[in-house]
Amino acid sequence: MELAPPNFLLQVEALERRLAENHRKMPEIKSKIRILRSGYNGEKTLKYYLDQIPVHKYHIFYGLRLPIGNTYFQIDALLLSQKLIIIIDAKNHSGMLRFEKKQMIHEYADNRDIYENPVAQVNRHEILLRHSFEYDKVPQIPIANLVTVCKPSTEIIINQEYQEAEQKVIRAYDLLRKVDELEEAHTGKKLNNKTVNQIINLLLSRHTPQKIDILNYFQVSEDELISGVQCPRCLNIPMDYIRSKWICPKCLLFSKEAFINGINDYFLLIKPSFTNHELRKFLNMPSSRTTASNIPKRTLPYTGIKRGRIYHQPTIPILTNHVFPPNNKH
């Protein structure tokens, strides 16, 4: 399971693109983007080092979100082999991190924040994974866990009596050595290839991406969104539709597929389906015929016919060939 940007991050970035710069929620939105982007950057750092492990040793999953009872728990990275499972939690804070048994203290510039102890958190995830495996009658396999600090400039302070944190909190660049240590401590194979494949299928089938009503989350109404097609180069909204092309009145970029990013924005912000009328309203299309001719029917699944046709969100976002991908305004 490959690493991908969290859908929540994509939603908040789309919301930022579609609101006025002076919108009352913009400071909150920009703050959330910084937090989510930092977390994703930490996961990318984690992936950089995990990619250096020989591919035959582990099956690696990123961002697994698994059900347990009426709730879910999320694992930044999970390594599965015939010998053991390793759960990894990534921290990408700047400044100083102090690990205590009951909390983690983060100090940066003049700010001091207190968080749940990530060692306790990753221990809890291990317990929840064991419970989940017991429910599905998965054969017992050793499970280890680690907390990885991804920024090499971050100062790490661990209370002297907190020996568990000394063993489990590591630098990202020391990850391969720690994985080797865990391998050496678990020499015998506990699972055969068939069982490993069954666990892989189980994890993938149980993975449940988080779905958030982003407008409700930030208390923003659909009427507040800026409608129209956004220029992929200068980010101006809206572009003008002239002779089957989108033209930016600000930077004069010509494009035949600039509207595709608008379709993706609709799915991220409004709902996972649309009619011709709904997309026409969101992107300021000049007519229903123009809207129909611009919808990428080969890429978008749909149900119904003619005026009753409904287009549905694909598993993978629609891509464009633009050399100027959309950037954020922060």
Rank of each mutant, 00 (worst) to 15 (best):
A4Y: 06
A4T: 10
N7A: 01
V12I: 15
R18M: 12
A20L: 14
E21F: 11
E21Q: 15
L36A: 06
N41W: 06
E43A: 04
K44W: 07
L46W: 07
Y49A: 03
K57I: 13
I68R: 04
D76G: 01
A77F: 05
L84V: 05
L84S: 04
I88N: 02
H93S: 00
G95S: 10
G95M: 05
E107P: 00
Y108C: 05
R124C: 04
H131I: 12
P139I: 13
I143A: 06
I143V: 12
L146E: 00
P152E: 08
E161C: 02
A172K: 02
K178C: 02
I200P: 02
L204C: 04
S205R: 14
H207I: 03
E224W: 04
C231F: 11
C231I: 04
D240G: 02
Y241C: 01
R243S: 11
W246C: 00
F254I: 14
F259Q: 14
N264A: 02
F267K: 10
L269F: 06
S273T: 07
N276T: 08
K297T: 15
Y302Q: 05
Y311F: 15
P314T: 09
I318N: 05
N321M: 06
H322P: 02
F324E: 08
N327T: 14
N327Y: 14
N327C: 09
